[in-house]
Amino acid sequence: LLPSFEIGAWTEDDVYCWVQQLVRKGDSSAEMSVYASLFKENNITGKRLLLLEEEDLKDMGIVSKGHIIHFKSAIEKLTHDYIN
């Protein structure tokens, strides 16, 4: 489970856990499981996660359009939940 809904306070480890949970919950393929490490390697914290754009995801090595859409949708939901 994630430490809190205060996404802005999430550490790199918290984001890593979130990506792992996202991959487990989704209908995503096994190749998506490597993405948790990509987020950690790129020092993505909660604040940075909320700022990620499609180009950032591509720069991190996420090239599948479907996977990018999956992440963007999940990040938008997080942003919405965080604001409300």
Score class of each variant (00 low, 15 high):
S64C: 11
E54W: 05
K72Y: 07
V15S: 03
N84I: 08
D56R: 01
A9T: 12
G61L: 02
D14P: 06
V19S: 03
Y35P: 01
E6M: 07
S33L: 10
F39I: 04
I68R: 13
M60A: 01
I44C: 05
S29F: 10
K77P: 00
M32K: 07
H80Y: 07
H70M: 13
L2F: 13
I68C: 08
S64Q: 14
A36N: 02
K77W: 03
L51K: 13
R48G: 03
I83H: 15
L1S: 12
H80M: 10
W18Y: 05
I69V: 11
A30L: 08
Y16H: 07
M32L: 14
Y82S: 12
E54Y: 06
L51A: 13
P3D: 15
I69S: 13
M32Y: 12
G8R: 11
E54V: 05
F71E: 02
D81A: 10
G46N: 00
Y35C: 06
I44T: 03
S4E: 13
Q21V: 02
K77D: 08
S29Q: 11
I69L: 14
I62G: 02
L51D: 11
G61P: 05
D59M: 12
V63E: 10
E55I: 03
L51V: 10
F71T: 03
H70I: 08
I44P: 08
K77G: 07
L52C: 07
E76K: 15
S29T: 11
I44H: 01
Y35F: 05
I62L: 02
E54P: 04
G26F: 13
L1N: 15
E6L: 02
V63G: 06
L22Q: 11
A9R: 12
K72M: 14
S29Y: 13
L22G: 06
W18F: 06
H80G: 10
M60D: 00
W10R: 01
W18R: 03
M60Q: 02
K40E: 06
Q20M: 09
A9C: 12
G46Q: 09
T45Q: 01
A9G: 10
T79D: 06
L51E: 15
Y16G: 05
P3E: 15
E31H: 09
D56V: 01
I75E: 10
T79V: 09
M60C: 03
E53V: 09
V19A: 06
S37R: 13
